[in-house]
């Protein structure tokens, strides 16, 4: 809770700063991205090289979000906020709550047992402008890190994980090909997180970090509306369950710079004891 307070305070302070007539929200609609499941500015599953929020290189932007993923046998909620400083650095925080529902009882944890995890994110834009540099093929490139702390150390160790904390490192390259109305993102992540870290880090099958590829492809229907697909490769560190790649098909709508809504159908594969997990992802984001 302390973390959430810090973040909501930061968001509140940024909002007050915003309200005090300092110019902000300079970027174009949707070019701040939405917020991915671990709190970084991006698509739904994967971070983008774009800095979250609508601040230009002279401005500060911020956003807060709530994401709800209801799949066949589980329920995942993610909530958090981010601040984008001078379109260069992004600080983010996310709290993930994974509800085991009936599977909790089968695992001896009790029905509706919830696993919580905090994610602290940092992203830095290295070069490029994925929106404006339309005369070259050079994408916008950013590097980032996500420090993840699972709150259920005993539980994740009992399923075979080595640790309850870990750091993901990633590099993202993102570009809007405006003449084709396309957005292309590729992310390479170095991680040992099991199911985002909800099942801990490393495991009895693979203890070390591995490189995983993630991609997003979006089509800009108009300046407020985009549709697309995402795919995220995952490590497979635990003997107890085979971790599968994740994918989704999404629609994102930003009627104003202060509000965006994302809906997706997502396919997550096996998650402990249950195969073929799929369902609906919805996300609400407020910001500037």
């Amino acid at each position: 809770m302390k973390n959430l307070r810090i973040l909501s305070c930061l968001f509140f302070c940024a909002t007050v700063w915003h309200a005090n007539a300092v110019e902000t929200s300079g970027k174009l609609l949707l070019t701040g991205g939405v917020t991915q499941i671990e709190g970084a500015g991006g698509g739904g599953l994967t971070p983008w090289a774009f800095i979250g929020g609508y601040g230009t290189r002279d401005q500060v932007g911020a956003s807060a979000y709530y994401t709800n993923v209801v799949i066949s046998d589980y329920h995942l909620e993610s909530t958090g906020a981010l601040i984008g400083v001078y379109d260069r650095v992004e600080f983010s925080f996310a709290r993930l709550t994974f509800d085991t529902q009936k599977i909790g009882a089968l695992l001896g944890l009790g029905e509706d047992y919830k696993i919580k995890q905090y994610v602290y994110g940092l992203k830095v834009k290295i070069f490029g402008d994925g929106v404006l540099d339309q005369s070259s093929w050079v994408p916008q490139v950013a590097i980032g890190a996500q420090y993840k702390k699972n709150q259920e150390g005993d539980v994740v160790r009992s399923v075979g994980a080595d640790d309850d904390a870990g750091i993901d490192y990633y590099v993202s390259a993102t570009k809007i090909f405006l003449a084709q109305s396309l957005l292309v993102n590729t992310t390479l992540r170095r991680t040992k997180a099991n199911q985002l870290g909800i099942l801990g880090f490393g495991g009895d099958q693979e203890a070390s970090h591995t490189f995983q590829f993630e991609g997003s492809l979006g089509y800009l229907l108009n300046r407020q509306l985009a549709v697309g697909v995402e795919h995220r490769l995952k490590p497979d560190n635990l003997k107890v369950a085979e971790e599968k790649d994740w994918s989704d098909i999404f629609i994102a709508w930003a009627p104003t710079k202060n509000l965006s809504l994302t809906a997706a159908y997502t396919v997550l594969g096996n998650i402990v004891l249950r195969d073929d997990q799929s369902g609906f992802y919805t996300s609400l984001q407020l910001g500037f």
Binding site: D129, V131, L132, D133, Q134, S135, S136, F177, L178, A179, Q180, S181, L220, L221, N222
Partner: peptide, 15 residues
């Protein structure tokens, strides 16, 4: 929309 984005793509590098 496609024609709009074609024009914007030509103008954007002028930044």
């Amino acid at each position: 929309e496609r024609a709009q984005n074609k024009l914007l793509a030509k103008l954007a590098p002028m930044h």
